[in-house]
Every structure is written in structure tokens, then in C-alpha cells.
Design a protein around this nucleic acid. Structure first.
Lengths: 200, 200
DNA sequence: GCTATTATGGAACACTCATTACAGATGTCT
DNA sequence: AGACATCTGTAATGAGTGTTCCATAATAGC
């Protein structure tokens, strides 16, 4: 796996980014175990040797796909948290999530939920990676909520961990609703209802 | 697959219920694709031929396991819906869910969520079965809410589909929280918070 | 030109997958 | 007893798994 590093030797002949993007989309749709290397060679348009030389083994490739997913697709949450006011954060969090889940061109669910839940022991690294991503997302939300409380936008009585967990719960539930086949309009109304019951 | 029907011939030599229970637990933990027939022979204590004779192929066995799961494990929701008052229904729905998710001896998640989400095309029947179960659960909740509205326990302005979907969203989210590793105490507080924000 | 270095595709690897064929075991019925 | 029917374990089936080997191709520097 020295691809692209050395100045000498035969140069790479394919678009590494495009190949990884294709792999990511397939992993997103079928999960780690549901995606075979043969499937990957097809959608990436590469032979096994090229994949192994450029990305390592299946676990490495999955980790790279997850990284790409976070950087290129899952930024909707980070952007929402960057809103100046807490109300803006809350509204953006739900709206962006619905928008994300219903964007055509990719599966209607979070990759961290479908990537590896319920899998053999061989896939536990992938499963742990997905869990870790979920935990980090939740930690990011908490950080923003703590800031909001410091600025007085959130009552001091509210437990930050509990409130964060409650928010994450609803957001994760939305992903499952989308996977169940809910339409965009339905998800929007659910998100609005959640906001209303939260007091926004 | 004529096991147990005929009066003649060699009788079955194992506890069919116990074998199916073991299969169900493994499917619950590892999902359809994450569970191999070899794994199943181990936990069921049977040879492949016995399994095929008694339960059919892997898809059939998974369907039977799902049925058993619904009948023996997932009755907590149905019981909650049988509560006489809406407030009782709501409280029981959340409390029973938390209790269910944190009961030792089985994975901390709904089988309908981990059974087959993100899988290869071969497993789509299993995936559809899990989705169907989720849809039926949601339909049962809606039925109970409609009854509550007729009895005046729920304002007429509330859209039944939306409210049902919102409730399902939170309940599904709880399952993911549990799968993430939340403790029973944390889940309890999340459920209480959900109830409070819903007005109960 | 040559050599060094890396990438490529295809075939082969050892292994696991779900499933079945077969022979023997164990029961009921006459 | 024997005939019949069904179950059970072993071993095999062919297809699919992730991964590697190897001969060849393509570049850079000399």
C-alpha cells in the first residue's frame, strides 16, 4: 500500500476519490458484511489488487469510507451546531437531519446505523467504529448545549447529559423512520412536532 | 420438513422450542447475515439435516425466530397498549420499553432493528420482514391512540398519523441509545424526559 | 537504450457459506 | 419378527468469501 507516495514507478490510473466514494455508497447501503469485495470491485471499477494496494484490506477500506462519509456527507449536524443561537441550532438540527435523510442519491438512513448493527464477530471492529461515531456526534451536541447554558439560553436545572441523550434519541429515531419508508413530508411534520414539544 | 406431524417413523430427539429459542437469540444478537448455519448448529446443538428437516432453510428459520420473538419477547408493547387510560398507556409504553431493553439475557436492542439493517441483496426478505414488524408495531400504537381520541383523552386537533410517528420515533431512538451502551438509569431518565415533554 | 519502482489484471489461494445425499439409527404398525 | 416411515450425523456439494501471487505494463531517472 504505497500508492501515490513514491515519485517513481507506474502511476495510479484511476480516480482514488471517485473509487472511495463508490465504495462508501455501497457500504452505506449494504453495511460492512452485506458488501463483498467482489461487489466493491464492480462499483469501484478496479481489480482486487488495485483496491488492496490503494486502500488496504476490507476493514481499512470501510474505515476510510466512514471517514469520507463523515467529512463529505455528515457535516449537516456540525453546521447546525455552528448556528449562533440555541433556537437556531435546534431548528437547523432537525431540518438538516430531515433534509439529509431524504436527499436522493444515497440511502435514507445514517451510515452509522446501517453500517454494522447486528453482525458476526468478524465485523465487530466495524460495529465499534459505527458506535464510536454515534458517541462522538452525541458529544458534539452536548458541547454545544453546554455553551448554550452558559450563555443563559438553557435553564441551569436541566441536566446536560440527559438533555443531550434525549435529543440524540429523537434524531436517531428519525433515521429509523426514514429507513422505514417515511416520506419527506412525514419526516418534516415529525421534526416540527419534536421542536414544538421541546418548546421551539 | 414433516417433523413431528406423522405418527409413524423415528420421533424427533430434541426440544424444538429450546432449539428455536437458541436460534432466535443468536439471530437477535448477530442479525440474519451475521449468523451462519454453522453457528446455529452449535447453539442449537443440532446437525444441519435436523435443522433443515425441522425448520426449513435459513430464511424460514429466521422467520420462525422472528415470530417467536414477537410472541415471547416483544409483548411488552402490546401489554402497554392494553392499559385502560391513555396516561397509563404512555407511561407503560416507555417504562416497559426501557425495562425490555435492559433485561439481561438478550441483546440491548429490538430484534427488528438489528435483525437485518444494511445487508446484501440475498437478505432482503429478512430486511423486509423486520420493516414489516416495525410497521405493524406502529399501526398498533395508532389504533390505541385513535381509541384514546374517541374517548376524549386526546385533542381532536392532533393528527393521529403524526403523533403516532412521533411516538415511534422516540421509542426507536431509545433502542439505539441502549445499543450505544446507555445504562438502565440513563434510559429511564430519557424516558421520563420524553414523557414530561409530551405532557405526562 | 537500461534499470528501478510501482500499478494492474487475472488467476489462484485457502476457507467459509448454505444446502443436500446418503447411510444408519430409531421409532410405529402389522 | 419384518415392513415402513421418519430422523440424524457425516461428508460432500458447488458457489462465494477475503486475500495474495505473478507476470505484465507503465512511469522516472540514468
Amino acid at each position: 500500500m504505497k500508492t501515490g507516495n513514491g515519485k517513481t514507478g507506474r502511476p495510479i490510473s484511476f480516480d482514488k476519490d471517485a473509487a472511495l466514494e463508490a465504495a462508501m455508497l455501497l457500504f452505506w447501503e449494504r453495511g460492512f458484511e452485506g458488501t463483498s469485495m467482489a461487489d466493491l470491485t464492480h462499483v469501484m471499477g478496479l481489480s482486487p489488487s488495485s483496491i488492496y494496494a490503494a486502500f488496504g484490506d476490507k476493514h481499512d477500506l470501510f474505515a476510510l469510507a466512514a471517514k469520507r462519509y463523515l467529512e463529505y456527507r455528515a457535516q449537516y449536524a456540525g453546521k447546525a451546531l455552528a448556528e449562533p443561537t440555541l433556537e437556531g441550532v435546534m431548528r437547523a438540527l432537525f431540518e438538516n437531519t430531515v433534509e439529509f435523510l431524504t436527499t436522493p442519491g444515497h440511502p435514507p438512513a445514517c451510515m452509522s446505523l446501517v453500517g454494522a448493527t447486528g453482525c458476526s464477530v468478524d465485523a465487530t471492529p466495524a460495529k465499534q467504529l459505527m458506535t464510536e461515531i454515534r458517541r462522538q456526534n452525541q458529544a458534539a451536541i452536548k458541547l454545544r448545549l453546554v455553551r448554550a447554558r452558559k450563555s443563559g439560553e438553557l435553564p441551569k436545572e436541566i441536566n446536560m447529559d440527559d438533555y443531550t441523550r434525549y435529543l440524540s434519541t429523537i434524531l436517531a429515531g428519525l433515521s429509523i423512520q426514514a429507513a422505514n419508508g417515511s416520506t419527506k413530508a412525514e419526516l418534516k411534520r415529525t421534526a416540527e412536532m419534536a421542536l414544538r414539544y421541546l418548546g421551539y
